[in-house]
Design a protein around this nucleic acid. Structure first.
Length: 933
DNA sequence: GACATCACG
DNA sequence: GACGTACGTGATGTCC
């Protein structure tokens, strides 16, 4: 299609800067081999352009396209407002020299490349989009920048290339709560911390959308600001009217940027093969050159090897994923070739396929390996013929598999060879599967933990997330292979051809992630965290999980029956009071009965129109009415029964008679572990009835359980980090820390301390760790907010270091985007700059993270040292509950174990971190967990 | 699958 | 000075 741009034409506008920054952050700091020129961002940029061009086929392909860049740092917006984009970080040093190369790259692909001094790319995009619309054509803006959303509609849409998601008018509404024509009004009110647009203080996108929807537009709102009911909001709008108008001018895109070209100049052109291949060769992008050459039907240019390729050097340009190329290894010859290749490079990505997710019961089905990007294999071992269908004889193995013994005999020396690095994603899983059959995998790297060490708090660390984020590749989903629900099958029933593609791809992805993430560890300065706090924990946890803890089924069963009886009794009483039967377990039904039928005052509805019937609400009502108290009792029993006495029984392993939890190392952002399937970190203890559940956790015959827990570890760490002399001295003296706080705050001598005063001080101490607020403390203590605020003020007065710590921590988080523990663990705080309600949330999390995270690091270090420290004792470490370790030991050796374990725990910070406060550990023993704690 | 609720540190 | 508020988790049951 040609001629003047108009109806039937389709313009693509690519936000060049977004491409560059994404490429820069997604790739390691690659350099050109011949001269060391940084080219990581250019490499990523070229890959993205290539992928973009290749993806543009079919009827919706653009007829016109351009990549638009920013030019110069000073624009007309800086003249309007000196602080515009003032808090932007300077461009990284290794990115600067790459900027001109991205323009050259765009031209090499023969795509129009446009920029204009003094104008932002957004303004040029706006101008072109409006021109395209006026001419009757369509326009797609390839960007996810919210500043461009004001342009959407009437033939203009956006495409988030990252998520491959189109943003239309409805998409804009989802983001802003208004349609595109009102976006600037909302942005003017909400401001933007990234671009430093001031907006109206205290008003975020939600409130802004509410106001604009009510008043129609910004000018109408400002004109009628006096009518607003909320006093603060009204005053803000009146006081900051000019600032808001300025903000609107800042976010409003200029649709009349003077341009020295027309839409017709942007017509899509085929690249010139020589120019493009020449450029790629000059950049020394080997693989991309090959790919592009293939597409163009040309010979790939020869690029000299100017320096020997390092074995673990990341590839500057990536190999495309191609599941067809994965190898199905079916005999000893083929496997031997792989083992030889592994010894050649010294490392291998390994992944296991099994019959289930529970490593204690799952059986090994096959193994996949990868030694370089794009090169991977799957060694199926016990896949069933015909998908295990009974009609054909269910136990027949599929053809094309080597005997399990033979495969393992060949692989085991390699898996255990100290000179071969095994790379896994969540290696604890594979290590446990191999441990089941007597294979100890070592040494190893774990890509999940590498990601966690660098990016805790930013995103999760599952393979799908990492692959999409860092390899721009969506892995083959497992769902279609296994099905779901009742008809779900296990992996050994998956046909070999499909199994090879899926399984080998996992190894391929893992290897690529490792090549990408490993050099980044150093760049992010978290190598020590990974090497000392993450990786060494894997074998320790694997051993604990495999040990499990003995749980007595009869005890649970008896308790379950008792609970059921009590619940039935309570149900009768509840129905009696209400006058009919209903589902006591339904908060919705209960809410209506309490507040509508019975007419009790004080019902509060939540966001979906249901009354809240949480424990706080019911406890308040219980002083006046019988029903809430009964319901609370019923709920407690229901919880204990369903979650503990019943569910726990289903987790008792048939072979071991024990319960084997699984710890996630990379789940909690602060560095804490999390326990799942079942969660053994939330077994009841606070109420007498719940505590009895712990009686079912028992020691084996002839053994005893020993529990050791850190005393007040978070408060001790707070005393150290915030440097509070009074707290440090109290810990040194061994004082009751809450009583001391109370005495200091309320001027009560320690000898005359009452439980009530101490309770309040305790709540405040905890509040401080959580990033205290008057509201939260008031709610916790059930006192007026003003009184709670008074306590907090007094606390800050007596312990001024706390305030400094809080302020410094928030400032650090704002500046760096993360906070750190004493051991260097980073916890990212992406929402710290948010406006509105999110801000307080993020600030409190930032204040808490170094404290909770340091405590988590301390016990991790203790756990890592523990196996050696107790190696000569007849003892096993079973469980970790954040500040507690539970052991099982032969009778008679309790004291020796306590001495050894306490020594490790109390000195776990040594020698990396020197603490001003001593860590102390309390110990207990017993035949069951209730006694030991 | 979202939400409410409640178990733990 | 106000948006809604204590920090971090996981499992269960209801209800759409």
């Amino acid at each position: 299609m040609s001629g003047t741009f108009g109806k039937g034409h389709h313009l693509h506008l690519i936000d060049g800067s977004a491409f560059i920054f994404r490429a820069y952050h997604a790739l390691p700091p690659l350099t050109r081999k011949s001269d060391g020129l940084p080219i990581g961002a250019v490499a990523g940029f070229c890959n993205m352009l290539h992928r973009y061009v290749e993806g543009n086929t079919g009827p919706d392909a653009p007829t016109h396209a351009a990549v638009i860049f920013d030019k110069g740092s000073h624009t007309f917006r800086n003249d309007m407002y000196g602080l515009y984009k003032a808090n932007r970080e300077a461009m990284p040093e290794d990115l600067r020299p790459q900027m001109p190369l991205t323009r050259t790259a765009t031209e090499a692909f023969n795509i129009a490349c446009k920029e204009k001094e003094g104008f932002e790319a957004d303004d040029i995009i706006a101008t072109l989009a409006v021109q395209a619309r006026a001419a009757g054509g369509r326009c797609t803006i390839i960007s996810s920048d919210k500043d461009l959303m004001q342009l959407v509609g009437d033939g203009v849409e956006m495409l988030d290339a990252m998520k491959n998601k189109t943003i239309d008018r409805d998409g804009v509404f989802e983001k802003f709560g208004v349609f595109p024509e009102s976006v600037v009004d909302v942005q003017a009110l909400a401001g933007d911390s990234v671009d430093n647009v001031p907006g109206a203080p205290g008003i975020g996108i939600k409130t802004a959308a509410l106001l604009i929807n009510e008043y129609g537009n910004l000018e109408a709102l400002l004109a009628r600001a006096e009518e607003i009911k909320q006093p603060k909001r009204r005053q803000t709008l009146i006081d900051h009217a000019e600032q808001i108008r300025l903000s609107r001018r800042l976010v409003l895109l200029d649709e009349n940027t003077p341009l020295d070209f027309t839409l017709d100049d942007l017509e899509v052109r085929d690249p010139d093969a020589d120019t493009l291949l020449g450029f790629l060769a000059e950049m020394e992008f080997r693989t991309l050159s090959k790919r592009v050459a293939e597409v163009l039907g040309r010979e790939a240019p020869v690029i000299a090897e100017t320096s020997p390729a390092l074995p673990d050097a990341p590839q500057a340009d990536d190999v495309p994923f191609d599941a067809e190329k994965y190898e199905h290894v079916a005999d000893a010859d083929a496997l031997q070739k792989w083992i030889d290749a592994i010894y050649e490079v010294g490392y291998v990505a390994v992944d296991t396929e099994t019959t289930g997710l529970n490593e204690m019961t799952a059986e090994l089905v096959g193994i996949s390996l990868s030694t370089e990007p794009g090169k991977a294999c799957y060694i199926p071992l016990i896949h069933k013929a015909h998908g295990g269908d009974d009609l054909f004889g269910s136990d027949d193995l599929a053809e094309g598999q080597m005997p399990v013994e033979q495969a393992l005999q060949m692989l085991t020396p390699m898996l255990e060879d100290q000179s071969i690095l095994k790379i896994g994603q969540n290696m604890k899983y594979d290590a446990k599967i191999f441990a089941q059959i007597g294979i100890t995998v070592a040494p190893f790297d774990d890509t999940m933990l590498m990601s966690y060490a660098q990016h805790a708090g930013l995103h999760n660390h599952g393979m799908d997330t990492l692959s999409e984020r860092y390899l721009s590749h969506t892995p083959i989903p497992i769902k279609p292979l296994l099905g779901s629900g009742k008809s779900a099958i296990t992996f050994d029933k998956v046909p070999l051809e499909e199994a090879v593609k899926y399984a080998a791809e996992d190894a391929d992805i893992t290897l690529r992630l490792w090549q990408f993430l490993k050099p980044q560890l150093h760049r992010a300065e978290v190598t020590k965290v990974y090497e000392t706090l993450e990786r060494p924990l894997v074998p320790v946890l694997a051993a604990m999980e495999r040990s499990g803890i003995k749980v007595d089924r009869d005890t649970l069963s008896r308790m379950s029956n008792a609970f059921a009886q009590k619940m039935a009794g309570l149900e009768d009483e509840i129905y009696e009071i209400v006058g009919r039967k209903f589902n006591v377990g339904s908060p919705a039904q209960l809410g209506e009965i309490l507040f509508d039928e019975m007419g009790i005052e004080g019902g509060k509805k939540g966001k979906n129109g249901k009354y809240s019937t949480g424990v706080d609400v019911l406890e308040d009502l219980a002083t006046e009415h019988d029903l809430p108290a009964r319901v609370l009792d019923w709920r407690q029993l229901s919880k204990l029964k369903s979650t503990y006495t019943d569910a726990l029984q289903t987790h008792i392993n048939a072979d071991t008679g024990r319960v084997h939890t699984s710890y996630s190392i990379a789940g909690a952002s602060t560095g804490r572990l999390a326990s799942t399937d079942p969660n053994l970190q939330n077994i009841p203890i606070r109420t007498e009835e719940g505590r009895r559940i712990r009686e079912a956790f028992v020691a084996e015959e002839g053994k005893t359980l020993v529990a050791l827990d850190y005393s007040q570890i978070e408060l001790r760490i707070l005393a150290h980090i915030a440097d509070i002399p009074a707290l440090k001295e109290a810990f040194a003296r061994g004082d009751d820390i809450h009583a001391m706080t109370a005495s200091e705050m309320f001027d009560v001598p320690m000898e005359e301390m009452t439980p009530e005063v101490r309770r309040r001080a305790k709540a405040i101490n905890f509040g401080v760790i959580y990033g205290i607020s008057g509201f939260g403390l008031a709610r916790n203590l059930r006192i007026p907010r003003s009184e709670a605020q008074g306590f907090i003020d007094r606390y800050f007065e007596r312990f001024p270091g706390i305030r400094t710590y809080m302020d410094d921590t928030k400032a650090f988080a704002k500046e760096h985007g993360y906070v750190q523990t004493l051991f260097g663990r980073k916890i990212h705080t992406p929402n710290i700059g948010a406006k509105g309600p999110h801000a307080g949330f993020a600030a409190r999390a930032a204040i808490n993270a170094p404290i909770q995270g340091t405590a988590a690091d301390v016990i991790r270090r203790a756990m890592i040292r523990m196996p050696d420290a107790i190696a000569d004792l007849p003892a096993t470490m079973l469980l970790q509950v954040h500040d507690e370790l539970l052991f099982e030991v032969e009778k008679g050796a309790e004291d020796t174990l306590i001495a050894a374990a306490r020594e490790v725990m109390e000195n776990a910070n040594d020698p990396v971190v020197k603490l001003d406060v001593k860590l102390t550990v309390d110990a207990g023993t017993g035949a069951n967990w209730a006694e030991a704690h």
